[in-house]
Simulated scan of single mutants.
Amino acid sequence: MGSSQISPTVKKWFIWSGPLSLAPFVAALVLLARMVPPPRPSWSAERIAEVYAGNQTGILVAAFVAIVSIALWANWAGVVIAECRSVETSSPFLTYTLTIFASAMFLITLSCPVLLGFGAYRAGEVPPEITRLINDAFWFAAEYPYSPFAAFMVVLAIVVFSDKRDTPVFPRWVGYFCLWCALLMFPGGMLAFFKTGPFAYDGLLAFYVLAGAYTTFTIALSVVMHKQMNRDAARERGSRPEVAAAEEPVVAR
């Protein structure tokens, strides 16, 4: 992390924009849409339709809030990828791979509030089976395409383990942490086979563990990057000639 023309304050905002994007997204899903805990996939079409029709305005507002907050996530991903770019001195194929996965992650996440709002748009006006189908699509979009998220974590771990410098961008434990989080994302790919139990889209593993792993991953990386930025700033201040001269003790003659 070398010196930059960009204000450190701007960079700190970008570093924390990942957790800041999650906060309104989760709050809207829980408080406005009232979708946590999720509707059970085993529920009848009529019951699912009642969930959407009974809280149509809240769900539509939640979808709008989520769409706005998701834009902040791109700022966070940009900082992560830029820091990884500093590790590769030539042929930055890992950086390009991270960029591709991050783009997929952004589009997948953006599709979630679109489907949520779509389900509430004509709730009560269409047959209940259609509303239930859209609800299934929303939860599938939120959990099923776990692979770009897990792959992003695995590639990031490779970058961490490849950084052999004295002061690496990320501590080595971050690599192991990324691999562990990637493993915890795996249950999302199992929900298509279950309508009840921990692997269903309302289950412990497919929903709560997956969401917890991704949230913890985002916050942990923000904390690490923030600390690294502060260390770099302190080291840069200490290396300035005027600072060093000012700190030299005056020898009495």
Results as ranks from 00 to 15, higher is better:
A141Y: 02
A142W: 08
A142S: 09
E143V: 02
P145E: 02
Y146A: 01
Y146C: 01
S147D: 01
S147L: 15
P148M: 15
A151E: 09
A151Q: 02
M153Y: 09
V160A: 05
F161L: 04
S162Q: 05
S162Y: 00
K164G: 01
R165L: 09
R165Y: 06
D166T: 12
R172F: 03
V174F: 09
L179N: 03
L179G: 00
L179H: 02
L179V: 12
W180T: 14
W180M: 15
W180V: 15
A182L: 06
L184D: 06
L184V: 07
M185F: 14
M185D: 05
F186Q: 11
G188N: 02
G188L: 11
M190Y: 07
A192V: 15
K195N: 12
T196Q: 06
A200G: 07
Y201V: 10
V209R: 01
L210C: 08
A213Q: 05
T215E: 01
T215G: 11
T216C: 11
T218M: 10
A220P: 00
H226S: 15
K227N: 12
Q228E: 11
M229H: 04
M229N: 11
M229V: 00
N230A: 15
D232G: 09
D232H: 15
A233N: 13
A234K: 14
R235Y: 08
